[in-house]
Amino acid sequence: GFFSTTNTVHYLIDKLKKVDFFLKIDTEGTFNAQHIIAKIQQIPATNAHTVALNTLNIKHKLLFQEC
Rank of each mutant, 00 (worst) to 15 (best):
G1L: 06
G1W: 01
F2W: 03
F2V: 12
F2H: 08
S4V: 06
S4P: 00
S4C: 06
S4W: 01
T5K: 10
T5A: 13
T6F: 07
T6M: 08
N7G: 08
T8P: 00
T8C: 02
H10Y: 12
H10F: 11
Y11W: 13
L12E: 13
I13C: 09
D14Q: 14
K15E: 13
K15D: 09
K15N: 10
K15I: 04
K15Y: 03
K15V: 04
L16N: 09
L16Q: 11
L16V: 05
L16G: 03
K17F: 07
K17R: 08
K18M: 11
K18C: 07
F21G: 00
F21M: 05
F21I: 07
F22T: 02
F22P: 08
L23G: 07
I25S: 04
D26P: 00
T27M: 06
T27C: 04
E28A: 12
G29Y: 07
T30K: 08
T30H: 09
F31P: 01
F31M: 11
F31L: 14
N32V: 13
N32I: 12
N32A: 12
N32Y: 07
A33L: 06
A33P: 09
Q34R: 01
H35S: 14
I36D: 03
I36L: 15
I36P: 00
I36E: 10
I37E: 02
I37K: 01
A38C: 08
A38H: 06
A38W: 02
A38E: 12
K39R: 08
I40R: 00
I40T: 08
Q41P: 01
I43G: 00
A45E: 13
T46D: 08
N47S: 15
A48Q: 05
A48N: 02
H49C: 05
H49T: 05
H49Y: 04
T50R: 03
V51Y: 01
V51Q: 05
L53H: 04
L53Q: 08
T55C: 13
L56Q: 05
L56R: 03
L56I: 08
L56C: 10
N57I: 10
I58E: 15
K59L: 12
K59R: 09
K59D: 15
H60C: 05
H60I: 01
K61V: 11
Q65V: 12
Q65W: 04
Q65I: 11
E66Q: 11
E66R: 11
C67T: 10
C67E: 13
C67H: 06
